[in-house]
Amino acid sequence: MRIRKRRAILRKRSTKRVSRSRFGNMMVVLFLLLLGIFIALPIYYVIISSVKPISELFYFPPRFYVLDPTTDNFLSLIKLQSQSEVPFERYLFNSVLVSGISTVGYVMLASMAAYALAKHKFPLKGFITQAVVIAILFRPEVTSVPQYILMSKVGMIDTYWAVILPAMAGSFGVFLLQQFLDTVPNELIEAGRIDGASEYAIYFRLIMPMLKPAWMTVIIFTFISIWNTTGVQFIYSENLKMLPAMLSSLSTAGIARTGVAAAVAVLMMIPPVVIFLFSQNSIVETMAHSGMKG
């Protein structure tokens, strides 16, 4: 009897949520389901289109399933484009090169800067921290005209650098890393200093490993944004352009190119989705500290 009572109390305590009506729960599921279908349908349609043979692509009315899946679209992507001026592989190479360099570079520079901003004392620190937050407002698109003026003065236009370097100047990653670093106790760093470790050793041996969830997050955000940059404003030479530029010309080329465009879209989706799947927990952990105080 007593045990049963205690169990009842325990059970009551362990229910962390209060008063959830069953009707409400059903509405929650229904709402998420309907909205989720609306969100997922276009992506599903793209994937389906990428494996449709020509005959089914032209089937009227368009169908949401595929009878005879094929890899033709992916193969013709390589065939078609290798006859044209710039082959598909070149766009792919440019995309991988530019996103790779800017992502790795940005994570390095941003975490170093965030460490200084979070744990060092120096003049203008408050001012720079404020600037970091305000700068999140200004997306690269918005500042692109004056950026263009500056970059053309130093001869950077129409090179890879015109995409890579601006990508490494963003402030959102610094903001995230700095917020995350605020949760690292100062005593830990003090202890390192007392043990005679140099600032550099503290950063590379102590801080960097602890920051792992945060830089995983910055990696995925930076990678997504660069991977999807067309960069056409700063790069004119077709052989320096990246995959999004190719997708944008294919997607407006009409129905004859639907299958190939869908194939490019699917290939472009794969890297971000894979990285996200591997880093989802890190992202949630990091974004929990992403709030703005004050």
């Binding site: 909205l35 989720g36 969100i39 997504i224 067309t230 997708l247 407006t252 879209a265 472009m268 996200f276």
Partner: peptide, 16 residues
């Protein structure tokens, strides 16, 4: 979370 984030994650796929 993945489903709802996927359009932003997929980026330029909106062109489709």
């Amino acid at each position: 979370t993945l489903v709802f984030y996927s359009p932003a994650l997929a980026g330029n796929v909106y062109m489709m």
